[in-house]
């Protein structure tokens, strides 16, 4: 297991129609390091179109950056040998946003777990495999008898997301790349999910890159946070510092835009549509699709 995942000057451009330059820059010179030791939770927060999901795809090796590099244990992930690449694929695990899209609706959910066992050669024996699966399901607070043998449509969104966490638990990666994993879950299930991630950090020493647009989730997780705007990281630091003493105007705007639950603290200023309009252009980038596992 390698101890570091590093982005060095990553830039990602997409071709786009109707833009003078012929492309848009979704990720612009982004550098950061995720350390496995000590395990940490690092949140990447920004609004839609800011480039945060593209960064997830770069880190996971699903999209090769147009410039810069993603390093795993000091080596470029797009230049790894076969064996190194296999190790990287096991050690860096994704959790995607949509608990519907990641499952093939024709297969029982067990398959996602058995496939992981098989692909990564965790065990050859069926009984040992089942034992591992059941243990991991319990670790994410699912009862094996309630989920095994079911089809994706028979489970709730929260259950499906936790199955993906069970898969992560089985593989014990050093890094989890979670791209908006809770944005489709309601408040209570969301808290459940976040608590499991924090458990993983504490008990299994997993480092999580948590990508979200929701500041209250970031606040709940704690740890470190990076704020991204228009493809650039504009502010980074411990959650408590960034949330209480934001230094960048964009972070301030984000924090001020959280509706305060106080009718006497209504917004007095307006924010203009124009300053947010660039999203129309950003939208021209292909929407990242989560691959079916």
């Amino acid at each position: 297991m390698k101890s570091e995942l590093e982005l060095r000057g990553v830039q990602q451009r997409f071709h786009a129609r109707g833009v003078a330059s012929g492309y848009i820059t979704a990720v612009d010179d982004v550098s950061f390091t995720l350390a496995a030791k000590p395990p940490q939770v690092v949140s990447l927060v920004g609004q839609s179109g800011s480039g945060k999901s593209t960064i997830a795809r770069n880190v996971l090796g699903l999209q090769k950056p147009t410039a810069g590099s993603v390093l795993y244990g000091g080596k470029d992930i797009f230049k790894l040998s076969r064996a190194e690449y296999d190790a990287y694929r096991r050690d860096v695990q994704p959790v995607f946003q949509d608990p519907y899209a990641i499952f093939n609706p024709f297969y029982r959910v067990d398959r996602v777990l058995w496939k992981a066992l098989k692909k990564f050669g965790l065990t050859k024996s069926r009984s040992k495999g089942l034992e591992l699966i059941e243990e991991s399901l319990r670790a994410v607070r699912l009862e094996p008898e309630n989920v095994l043998g079911r089809y994706p449509h028979q489970l709730s969104g929260g259950q499906r997301q936790r199955i993906m966490l069970a898969r992560v638990h089985m593989l014990r990666p050093s890094f989890i790349i979670a791209d908006e994993p809770v944005s489709m879950l309601d408040a209570q299930v969301r808290k459940h999910f976040l608590d499991i991630l924090l458990d993983f950090q504490r008990e299994h020493a997993m480092t999580t890159l948590f990508i979200t647009h929701d500041l209250s989730t970031v606040y709940y997780l704690g740890g470190e946070v990076m704020v991204i705007n228009k493809g650039q990281i504009v502010e980074r630091g411990p959650v408590s510092t960034v949330m209480h003493e934001p230094s960048h105007p964009y972070t301030k705007l984000l924090l001020d835009s959280i509706p305060q639950p106080d009718p006497d603290a209504r917004w007095t200023s307006r924010i203009s549509v124009d300053e947010l309009e660039e999203r129309a252009d950003a939208k021209a980038a292909p929407a990242p699709e989560a691959p079916i596992l």
């Binding site: 500041l215 924090l255 959280i258």
Partner: peptide, 29 residues
């Protein structure tokens, strides 16, 4: 009225609902 409900909730459930709101970061204004 929104002010009355937030400042002086009459029902215990409303009280709980308002108390359970997570407050993030600094206060604007």
């Amino acid at each position: 009225d929104v002010r009355q409900v937030f400042k002086d909730p009459q029902d215990p459930y409303t009280q709980q609902l308002i108390e359970s709101i997570p407050r993030v970061g600094r206060r604007s204004s």
